[in-house]
């Protein structure tokens, strides 16, 4: 009871009209109890603000009438197929990693032999292709009735693995273009695999994409900065959109004050 009185005590009428942000948030029940009561008191006496709230309400009501189309019925089959391909590809890398562990790496000669073997194997895979990389073209099922969508059909050699399209994504932040690169390339994978026993697999979890500012692809970062550090926070405050690139755990390599920096979570 006494707490309610204290809340009510804090209610003061607005000196001016509440701004539209507040009125819109009030409509969404996204303001505090005290704030809501102050707004309601103001609305009782202000025709202009009542009208604004009414207009917002009409827009929200209209948005409620916007159609929400269902995903096409064949999409589930297509996603399932692509996911199966991705899983198969993942297990191929796993097998390759395990096979390499069999090669004795204690001696320098063994290490060199392992690397040569890996390079040879990769060259063979890249030049000839393997059944694991083959699959129906993502567009193959377009327009097919849903019953046929799950039918594998004739296997078509894709012009490029559709998953690799993801690697070439670019994004613009503060007028700069960032190119996404896969960190789990073969060399890194082998490195991670070879050292995973020592780190208890923790390093495998560190495999992330890297967003590299255009033109810095061949640069080594001069400093690694944690986004939670004061310098990292300052950078994020200055370039807020960097947060989007870092959101899924990816790293960002960028030029800042004549220095090439790598920005990451938990550097």
């Amino acid at each position: 009871m006494s707490r309610n009185i204290r809340v009510l005590d804090r209610i003061r009428p607005f000196a001016q009209h509440p701004d539209n942000e507040l009125l819109s948030a009030y409509l969404d029940h996204e303001v505090g109890v005290a704030e809501a009561r102050t707004i309601e008191a103001h609305l009782n006496s202000c025709e202009a603000c009542r009208s604004t709230v009414q207009q917002f309400r009409r827009v929200v009501h209209g948005l409620g009438r916007v159609d929400r189309p269902l995903p096409p019925p064949w999409l589930a089959a297509r996603v399932r197929q692509q996911v199966a391909l991705a899983a198969e590809r993942g297990s191929l890398w796993d097998r390759l990693g395990k096979a390499l562990k069999v090669v004795p790496l204690q001696s320098q000669a063994g290490g060199v032999a392992g690397v040569v073997f890996a390079v040879g194997l990769i060259c063979v895979l890249v030049t000839t292709g393997t059944p694991s990389f083959q699959g129906a073209h993502p567009n193959e099922h377009r327009g097919l009735p849903s019953g046929l969508a799950s039918y594998p059909g004739p296997v078509e050699e894709p012009a490029a693995d559709p998953n690799f399209v993801l690697m070439q994504t670019t994004s613009e932040v503060a007028g700069r273009t960032f190119v996404r690169q896969e960190d789990d390339a073969v060399w890194n994978f082998l490195l991670y695999e070879a050292t995973s026993a020592a780190t208890g697999g923790a390093n495998l979890a560190q495999r992330k994409d890297v967003w590299v500012e255009e033109g810095l692809q061949d640069h080594q970062p001069e400093a690694r900065i944690d986004v939670a550090s004061p310098r990292g926070k300052a950078l994020l405050a200055r370039y807020q959109d960097l947060g989007y690139l870092l959101a899924d755990g990816s790293r960002v390599v960028m030029r800042y004050r004549q220095e090439t920096l790598e920005l990451r979570r938990g550097a």
Partner: peptide, 19 residues
Amino acid sequence: DGEQAADLTQEIFLRVFRY
């Protein structure tokens, strides 16, 4: 665009699967 949305949805779920 409906077709593009279908492509994007597929790619998004591939990323979800991966991560």
